[in-house]
Nucleic acid binder design. Structure first.
Length: 740
DNA sequence: GGTAAGAGGCTTTTT
DNA sequence: GCCTCTTACC
């Protein structure tokens, strides 16, 4: 057997050495699916004589793509970068940049993100005089996004019968799409829809890709949308060399148009498909898997499977039951501090349902001086000053981008006020052109006063100058630098002596540094802008010895020794959204997705899982009473640590007992439910294991011993231990198990 | 045309 | 509670 496959188990081996035809790999959490994909790439190249550039592997996040790239490189060495590994969206960008003109997408297109979408939709709603009490910009956006995730344009979009706003939304979608085109812009959805339509309607383009690419792999298949599925189906074509890897239990993006049915119907779409199940889990202890299984087995419509592990037993689950979210965060921070004596801090993650929940946790960690990092990749690029600078950069590439032009035409202040802007806009609407055409190309005199005309003219010349830099091929660094200075942004912040002004200036300089770095890596300005647009929330890497804070969604695909999941309450997890307005009815599909989200959270943990909950929680300006999550009630009691089990004396109440106040409404009154008594002792489950001189520890090779001294903390903490054998050694804490 | 204060909406999750 | 957008006033 090839040495490449030796390290794999039987199923993994079968999957990794699959050559041609469709294959569905049902890969449970922690079953080594990335390993399988990377080994298959290596196997195809080394053993099957496939050339590197014939392989396309699509992942969900840039981080996952990066991870895969580096692991493939390890297996294959030089040349590995020829394998095309990217996200669906990045693949779309690349294909559209190459051939998008066939479908009316110019090569210099800019990518509008969700807030650009929103402002565009707001403008359209305003211009069309739509009554926004029923049709809000956000609902329009989500309906457009949803239609696009199904690959549907305005004419084809589904409208529910009896939906009074449907036709209006369709018309807004139409205008929205027209506005994107006249701006030379695409949104995230277009990156997929336009790519598919390009491949479908231009056989020469499709054939070119099919000649070049022959083997396709899709990771996280359970989270692909119909349009994404269609994209790979088109590329794979009749050869059907398509391998998809997924886990229906981890489908958590239904709200974004992902369709679990993709995974359930793959076998129908490809009758010749082989199916391989990976059920051995290499990540978690049995205790954690048992807990996860207790949650997921109640999920409707799943492909039956049960993970198993060789890691028998393991620490029991801990429960932090707090009176409110502040106390929950404090206890969690305290627990993290204790744990970081024995676990490297970057092996601890705190997960929560919504981003808004991070704040209290951050406060608590800061109070204890525990280093942490909130994983929210986009936050830097969401800063106003960065968005402003980005708008200049995008205009330098494509001056027709109205959203960008409107954003900065008066930023920094240059005396072009709303009246002037409105006049320009109506001129643009009349001519059916971009604003840039109005202020630069049009030879008609503008209906503006003398002063306003002068200012607009000078603004147009500024943009033209930046655009010329791009045309004559200036480097990314240069365009960023010139944009910063000539736009007046730097001057505006320099004159602002406040702390905030200084910080904003620093952020701009930071972006300049990024540009310089990327330029060294061979990026053009367009590449840099693409990266900025496509960077995802989960893409940020946690650097150094820091506890990671992120949403459950962002944690998908990651693993940690210790996972603390906070807010395991009704209306937080499952989220209140699951319920209809009155909270009396719940949407079974939404509930099932929350269940899978809970499962994803649990299965991130290798060795220790801590659950947190608060009796009351501050939500959107009011304090709400919360009850323990139903998911908690589904856990077998023996999986909970003794103190967690005994202290919050939780009772299972069936039927009539199950009454719970929450926001003054009854929550799932007919269901089995836990009633928690919160008046218990708050000491954490295993407080006594906090290492201190005199305590006992165990080392896997040296045996048991007594701590004599503790030096440092966190990853580098060392204990001086006198082992029972008589020897005294200084040992890194992370190699020791603290007994008491 | 610019600024400051007030109103109103919002928080599910993200490429 | 916080952020964004609107409005009233300079």
């Amino acid at each position: 057997m090839s040495a490449l496959l030796e390290s794999l188990n039987v199923q993994q081996r079968a999957a990794a050495s699959h050559l041609e035809g469709p294959l569905l790999i049902l890969a449970g959490a922690g079953s080594g699916k990335t390993r399988v994909i990377t080994h298959r790439v290596a196997w195809l190249v080394k053993e099957a004589g496939v050339s590197l550039s014939e392989i396309l592997a699509v992942t969900f996040t840039n981080k996952a793509a990066g991870e895969m790239r580096s692991r493939v490189a390890k297996l294959l060495g030089a040349g590995a970068e020829e394998v095309w590994i990217s996200t669906f969206h990045s693949a779309g960008v690349r294909m559209l940049r190459e051939h998008g003109e066939a479908v009316g997408v110019p090569p210099g297109f800019v990518i509008y993100d969700d807030s650009d979408q929103l402002s565009l939709i707001k403008r359209i709603l305003k211009d069309s005089g739509t009554d926004t009490s029923f049709i809000t910009p956000r609902t329009v956006r989500s309906r457009i996004d949803y239609a696009k995730s199904c690959g549907l344009g305005p004419d084809a979009m589904d409208i529910d019968r009896g939906d009074p706003t449907g036709e209006e939304v369709r018309e807004i979608y139409r205008r929205y799409q027209a506005a994107l085109r006249s701006s030379g812009a695409v949104d995230f959805g277009d990156l997929l829809v336009e790519t598919v339509s390009m491949l479908r309607n231009h056989s020469a383009v499709l054939d070119a890709y099919r000649r070049r690419l022959r083997f396709f792999m899709v990771d996280e298949f359970q989270d692909t949308s119909p349009v994404q599925y269609e994209l790979v189906r088109l590329l794979a074509g009749p050869a059907e060399n398509l391998v998809v890897v997924g886990d229906d239990d981890q489908s958590i993006y239904g709200w974004r148009g992902a369709d679990v049915r993709n995974i359930l119907s793959f076998e129908t779409d490809y009758p010749k498909a082989r199916v391989i199940r990976l059920e051995q889990n290499y990540r978690s202890t049995q205790v954690i898997l048992d807990a996860a299984h207790a949650i997921i087995e109640k999920s409707p419509e799943r492909k039956k499977k049960r993970l198993w592990t060789e890691r028998r037993g393991g620490d029991l689950l801990e429960l932090i039951a707090a009176k409110d979210e502040v106390e929950e965060a404090r206890l969690a921070a305290f627990r993290v501090e204790l744990l970081s004596n024995t676990v490297p801090r970057n092996e601890i993650a705190i997960l929560y349902r919504t981003n808004a929940m991070s704040r209290v946790v951050e406060d608590a960690l800061r109070a204890r001086r525990v280093p942490y990092q909130v994983v929210r990749g986009r936050s830097f690029y969401e800063r106003a000053e960065i968005r402003d600078l980005t708008a200049y950069l995008r205009l330098a590439v494509n001056p027709h981008s109205d959203a960008d032009l409107l954003r900065i035409i008066n930023t920094p202040r240059r005396g072009i006020g709303s009246r002037t802007v409105e006049r320009l806009r109506s001129a643009g609407d009349e001519a059916g052109t971009s604003l840039w055409s109005v202020i630069w190309d049009s030879h008609k005199p503008l209906d503006l006063g003398q002063a306003a005309s002068r200012r607009v003219r000078s603004f147009a010349e500024l943009i033209r100058a930046l655009h010329d830099l791009v045309i004559k091929g200036s480097s990314a660094y240069e365009v960023v630098k010139e944009s910063m200075i000539r736009s007046g942004l730097v001057a505006a912040f320099e004159s602002d002596v406040s702390e905030e002004g200084r910080e904003r200036l620093e952020n701009l300089t930071e972006l300049l540094a990024v540009a310089a770095q990327r330029e060294d890596e061979g990026y053009s300005l367009v590449d840099l802008l693409d990266e900025m647009a496509l960077l995802g929330d989960a893409d940020e890497k946690v650097e150094g010895e820091r506890v990671a804070l992120m949403t459950l969604h962002a944690a998908k695909g990651l693993e940690f020794d210790v996972v603390m999941m906070l807010g395991v309450e009704e209306r937080t997890l499952p989220h209140a959204r699951v319920f209809t307005d009155t909270a009396a009815f719940e949407d079974p599909e939404a509930l099932a997705e929350e269940r899978r989200l809970c499962y994803v959270g649990f299965t991130r943990a290798r060795s220790k899982l801590v659950l947190g909950m608060a009796r009351t929680r501050w939500v959107m300006g009011s304090r709400q009473v919360r009850g323990a999550s139903r998911f908690l009630g589904e856990l077998p009691a023996e999986l909970l640590g003794e103190r967690s089990r005994a202290q919050p004396r939780y009772e299972r109440a069936c039927g009539s007992l199950g009454r719970h106040e929450s926001q003054g409404v009854e929550v799932h009154p007919s269901k089995e439910e836990i009633i928690l008594d919160y008046s218990f002792d708050q000491r954490p489950e295993v407080e006594e294991v906090a290492p201190r001189p005199g305590g006992r520890v165990r080392h896997s090779l040296l045996g048991d011993g007594e701590i004599r001294r503790v030096d440092g903390f966190g990853h580098n903490a060392r204990f001086e231990v006198r082992f029972d054998s008589g020897s005294v050694k200084r040992v890194l804490a992370r190699y020791l198990q603290v007994l008491w």
